[in-house]
Amino acid sequence: MRIVDPTYGLAPADQESAAVTATPTDDLCGLSNSKPGATVLLETVGRRLFDDHGLGPMSVASKPSAAAGATPELLDHLAAQYRLAVVAIGD
């Protein structure tokens, strides 16, 4: 039996961002989903990464709000600026 694939979709023509090609200058950032639990997670993980591995200190960025996705502009900025990102989805 031949079926039409219900998952079929057209991918964006250009998923690469020019910003991603820039050389990161800072070690570590955290990206919060803008909920209180995420802040606690990031503070804790950032402290451990600094104490145990010498990474950081962690800068923390957030989505515009807990109800919205991160903007492409924010993700591009973080990708260009940092070598490592920790994403927290605490609730």
Partner: peptide
């Protein structure tokens, strides 16, 4: 239009396939 989170844009045929399902 492109649908999050995948970023894929459905076609008329893939929408119709889901309607059939």
């Amino acid at each position: 239009a492109a649908l999050p989170p995948s970023g894929l844009t459905p076609t008329l045929r893939s929408v119709a396939a889901n309607a059939v399902m």
